[in-house]
């Protein structure tokens, strides 16, 4: 039943996001035809698909942050919290259902657009590479988890409806602008998701999934999520 609630709560946000994320990158791939025409398939791939990936990452981040708006603390502000907390479920379960349902929606939001983009490429007779697509997805998934968990954590400690997304976006920009260009650029999650660090300049392709980085990102995300659950468990309403 909590899943039912989570779905009713987020379905409009989710469907709008999905539509946006599928449409824009597909259009981009389609539209970059002109640019890529004189170049090799690899170049075309680089221009169209990699730009597409960048667009998906940006839009996915925005969608994920907006999806995780709300939650137990937001319910405190709207007054429904005393109803929710009186249900015979533990706070741990409340949080887990919200996180897992949000996460599965976020997963759909990254897989479907990529599939769509891939299909558009095939349909328009462009060069495609399944391994490159998967590589991008792994980066997006692992890096996305970090921002997703940050959005969860912040919505678990601040009450305002728009405070949580504003703070999360703030952190994202700090990551891009602050870390991205500095000597600590390899710590930037944004760079990780975009694939900048793993880009082979001669082939213009991504090489070898950086499992260590992936693991580190997932671990950080798990840590942050645990902190969010603990925060809600300790909270008084």
């Amino acid at each position: 039943m909590l899943w039912y609630k989570a779905w009713l709560e987020t379905r409009s946000r989710f469907l709008i996001s999905l539509l946006g994320i599928v449409a824009l990158p597909c259009y981009l791939v389609f539209d970059q035809n002109a640019d890529a025409q004189p170049q090799t398939p690899v170049n075309w791939y680089y221009h169209a698909l990699d730009n597409g990936h960048r667009l998906i990452v940006v839009m996915w981040l925005a969608a994920a942050i907006l999806l995780m708006m709300g939650g137990v603390l937001r319910e405190k502000a709207t007054g429904t919290i005393s109803f929710t907390l009186a249900l015979p479920v533990s706070r741990m379960r409340l949080m887990l259902v919200r996180i897992l349902s949000g996460f599965s929606q976020a997963l759909v939001l990254m897989v479907i657009p990529w599939c769509a983009m891939y299909l558009v490429s095939i349909a328009t007779g462009r060069a495609t590479s399944l391994s490159q697509a998967l590589f991008h997805l792994v980066l997006l998934g692992a890096g996305g988890l970090v921002f997703f968990s940050i959005a969860v954590l912040i919505s678990s400690v601040v009450e305002g409806e728009y405070t949580a997304p504003v703070v999360t976006f703030g952190l994202l920009f700090a990551d891009i602008a602050g870390l991205g260009q500095s000597r600590y650029h390899s710590f930037s999650t944004w760079n990780f998701m975009i694939g900048n660090e793993y880009f082979n300049r001669s082939t213009q392709l991504l090489v070898g999934i950086p499992w260590l980085h992936v693991t580190a990102n997932v671990a950080v995300a798990v840590l942050i999520t645990t902190a969010a659950i603990k925060a809600i468990q300790r909270r008084e309403f």
Partner: peptide, 30 residues
């Protein structure tokens, strides 16, 4: 909480649900 029913002071319920959905939602817990 499984055996206690509670009507809170502000009686707020989920704005995005209909009456029938609210009843259906709540029934699933008991």
């Amino acid at each position: 909480r499984r055996r206690v029913a509670y009507v809170s002071e502000d009686k707020r319920l989920y704005n995005y649900m209909t009456v029938a959905q609210t009843i259906h939602f709540t029934s699933g817990f008991y």
